[in-house]
């Protein structure tokens, strides 16, 4: 069934000129406190390609929770604190399409007319979602050491629609020779997370995640993979709550574990 439009024309992103030897990692607040393994796997995947990773310890959050909740002042306060930490002209890799989208799409808007506008725009231009960076910039080739397994892939809305990702994560999974990706019926439909939406409109969010779980279980996959910890927290929480046998994992962890 076709439940979404075809992807828009790919967004043209200029690639970094010359070989990339050094990147920043923006870990995101959810990864930091709930899924640090995804950050660690991101570092290992990057280091294996010969890239030096810098993780400014002063970092915290892109500001999205407040930004999406009608509190741009507070979002700016937090985002502003990140700006000086990422001043070198090197790519910033983020294991999240949502936080990446916040910086890439919304920081220029958030800082419009502010003293930091130019700096915010410069950072926005250097942000890469992890799978996008692995595919387009590092052009990785992965060797699968795992046993045969069927997984399914959940596309994050912001990765698709704010970062313009099309099939980058699936191209990476496609390189794993023992992994079969069983597609969701409604891959392009939101899982119902939406940050504070999940709490403010808990009933709608619950209906959305229930449908997403049914879709996931219907694929017969052992694991659902995602690239955003927000979605994964929502989906895995709901799967566990209903006692589902399907596990969930961040793409970075899955790629690292199968290829290390």
């Amino acid at each position: 069934m076709t439940t979404g439009p075809p992807p828009s024309a790919p967004v043209f992103r200029p690639l970094p000129t010359g070989p990339v030897t050094e990147v920043y990692l923006f870990g995101t607040c959810l990864v930091d406190l709930f899924t640090p393994s995804a950050g660690v796997s991101t570092v290992r995947l990057l280091q294996r390609e010969g890239v030096r990773v810098i993780f400014p310890q002063g970092q915290s959050c892109c500001g999205q929770p407040a930004y999406n909740s009608g509190h741009p002042e507070e979002a700016r306060t937090v985002a502003r604190a990140q700006i000086p930490l990422f001043c070198k002209d090197i790519p910033i890799v983020i294991p999240s399409g949502s936080c990446g989208g916040m910086i890439r799409q919304h920081w220029p808007h958030l800082f419009a007319g502010q003293p930091e506008e130019a700096a915010a725009r410069a950072i926005a231009a250097r942000v890469w979602e992890l799978s996008e960076f692995l595919v387009h910039v590092l052009k990785v080739s992965l060797e699968d050491h795992g046993t045969p397994e069927t997984v399914t892939w959940h596309s994050s809305c912001h990765a698709m629609r704010e970062m313009g990702l099309t099939d980058e994560p699936k191209r990476l999974l496609g390189q794993l020779k023992n992994v079969t990706v069983a597609p969701l019926q409604r891959e392009r439909e939101c899982c119902g997370f939406g940050g504070t939406f999940a709490v403010r409109h808990a009933d709608v969010s619950a209906a959305m995640v229930a449908d997403k779980c049914a879709d996931i279980e219907g694929t017969g996959a052992a694991t659902v993979l995602g690239g955003d910890c927000g979605c994964l927290m929502n989906i895995s929480g709901a799967l566990e709550h209903k006692g589902s046998a399907v596990g969930s994992q961040h793409l970075a962890d899955y790629l690292w574990e199968r290829t290390k």
Binding site: D32, F34, P36, F55, A206, V209, M233, G237, A238, E240
Partner: peptide
Amino acid sequence: SVRKKPRFAAQSLH
């Protein structure tokens, strides 16, 4: 109401 409580990691990424 429909999800397990999120679990904080034992140690942060930082």
